[in-house]
Design a protein around this nucleic acid. Structure first.
Length: 206
DNA sequence: TGCCAGGCCCTCTTTAGGGCCTT
């Protein structure tokens, strides 16, 4: 697969449309089957973190107080991401914050995302569920650190994406799995999964 | 302090409802 960047946000809530702000972001560059570069930073958006989310993520208000401004961090991560296609686990969530935080600093943020959760639902229908942590255990992915911290989760989603890529290549005897195929797989109905993959397969299906 | 969303999928569906997943 061509190089992609996997991102993960930690935030103060579920929706920027209701005032939630980002507290941390991580982005990892995946190239040639491995993570080759990383960006991670806490960010101060001037908003208090609810106790429940402090417990969930381990990110406290005191940690945020001394973090760099959100505007600075978002500019840095946008530079890190460049024009690489993006991946996130439950991408509809991260896409909302990506667009909202970049819009605040006047950046164009309309980007294509692949969702590793949607692809996993297609490729790993037998998993107990499709939460990131569950899939990491199910697929025996490498440990990446504390769950619900941005860098650990971004790296976990990167390993998951690579696992899904390998599984797709094996299942459908593909010479290579492209980002475009992942985009199509996540939208394909289960009954059309094979047909969808075959369009990209250099080897005839048995 | 407490509360808040929404895109996607599945099915007992499509003139809809409910669960999943993210923080």
């Amino acid at each position: 697969m061509e190089p992609v960047v996997v991102i993960d946000f930690e935030t103060t809530g579920l929706s920027p449309d209701h005032g939630a702000r980002a507290t941390e972001i991580a982005a990892v560059l995946v190239r040639n089957g491995q993570v080759v570069d990383r960006y991670q930073s806490l960010m101060n958006a001037g908003q208090r973190i609810p106790p429940f989310i402090q417990s969930l993520t381990g990110i406290t208000n005191s940690m945020i107080r001394t973090a760099p401004p959100a505007a600075q961090v978002m500019a840095e991560v946008a530079d890190f991401v460049g024009d690489y296609p993006l991946v996130a686990h439950n991408a509809s969530f991260d896409r909302k914050f990506w667009q909202a935080e970049l819009a605040r600093i006047g950046y164009q943020a309309q980007r294509t995302f692949v969702c590793s959760m949607l692809v996993a639902r297609r490729v790993l229908p037998g998993a107990p569920n499709h939460k990131l942590g569950t899939l990491a255990t199910y697929a025996r992915l490498p440990a990446t650190g504390r769950h619900h911290r941005a860098l650990a989760d971004a790296e976990m989603a990167a390993h998951l994406t690579l696992f899904l890529e390998r599984r797709l290549a094996e299942q459908f005897r593909l010479g290579a799995v492209s980002y475009e195929l992942l985009q199509r797989i996540q939208r394909a109905s289960r009954s059309r999964l094979s047909e969808c993959a075959q369009e990209y397969s250099p080897v005839p299906q048995r």
